[in-house]
Design a binder for these strands. Structure first.
Length: 285
DNA sequence: AATCACAGCAACCGCGCACGT
DNA sequence: TACGTGCGCGGTTGCTGTGAT
């Protein structure tokens, strides 16, 4: 190459900073009509003075109709903490297991709330459980040396095998349209892709007469929307694709392990050796 | 009332990967 | 196989709102 990476766009020609409602509207309308096959070309086609990256980010993190928005529930926060123990800062992998939440959102919540909360609870735990020889406390499976994909596999297997029944990507369409018919897929490390594909399929299958109606009330409705973040036709159009996960109590690989885990140490051992090919640190029982 | 400090969050940046040619 | 291109990811920045002084 030699010339280095070409910039994603001509920065002097693009608008930056916060998005205006008009820009949002333009992006939503364009994507609902045409999908987003090519982010780089999209701004020009949509008549937006933004770079493709910015459009993609805005859509994924804010405008996508299947976003939950609103505060995280206690269960969601617990899930994030547990998945973070397994996956580390792999926000997209964590987000793939939290339907309606984005990696950016999770990352922010982690840095602003959960890290502190975890620190507090860990401090409490260390003062409360002073015995260094307590069985099981040192149990630690180190997956850091595996590739990201492999770590995803491991984490996924941990979830799936604990509750193979619920661990599915389910798309229960409430629409009459056969184009938006349900699909059931076992969730794998592509669950986010599966989910977005489902979403895209819905979008691309929407005929012009079931486009979201955006009128003068739209933005005031958006602003006043409840925690679901969904407004009128928007929710009924695309929100039905969800990933179901087992109770978070089933995912306790490291600290604060559930009795479930230690009761099934052989199970975990087998699972990890099968999933990862090796177990780096044997559980201390 | 004004100022400062901090938290929260949206948006940006640069890198690595996947894929097409 | 090498290279170019686009996308997605994780880290970081900077703006805004809010509480403390």
């Amino acid at each position: 190459m030699g010339k280095g990476r070409a910039p994603c766009c001509d920065k002097s020609q693009v608008k930056r900073g916060p998005w205006s409602p008009a820009e949002d509207l333009r992006l939503i309308t364009f994507i609902q009509k045409n999908g987003h096959d090519n982010w780089r070309a999209l701004p020009k086609q949509a008549g937006l003075m933004r770079c493709g990256k910015s459009c993609r980010l805005r859509w994924i993190n804010y405008l996508r109709p299947d976003l939950k928005r609103g505060n995280f529930t206690q269960e969601e926060e617990d899930t994030i903490i547990k998945l973070h123990e397994m996956l580390g800062n792999r926000w997209s992998a964590i987000a793939a297991r939290l339907p309606g939440r984005t990696d950016n959102e999770i990352k922010n919540v982690w840095h602003t709330h959960l890290k502190k909360r975890l620190k507090q609870s860990q401090n409490q735990a260390t003062t409360a459980t002073a015995s260094p020889n307590e069985p099981g406390r040192q149990f630690m499976i180190n997956v850091s040396k595996y590739s990201n994909k492999k770590k995803d596999d491991i984490a996924h297997d941990m979830v799936k095998e604990q509750d193979p029944v619920n661990h599915i990507v389910r798309s229960e369409s409430t629409s009459e349209s056969s184009d938006m018919s349900s699909s059931v897929t076992t969730a794998d490390n592509n669950s986010s892709a599966t989910n977005s594909n489902t979403c895209m399929k819905m979008e691309s299958s929407m005929s012009s007469d079931n486009f979201l109606e955006i009128d003068d009330n739209f933005w005031s409705e958006v602003l006043s929307a409840d925690n679901s973040g969904m407004v009128g036709d928007l929710s009924s159009a695309t929100v039905d694709s969800q990933i179901q996960f087992p109770a978070t109590s089933a995912i306790e690989p490291v600290r604060g392990c559930s009795s479930n885990l230690y009761d099934n140490m052989d199970y975990w051992y087998n699972l990890f050796t099968r999933s990862a090919g090796e177990l780096l640190e044997l559980p201390e029982i």
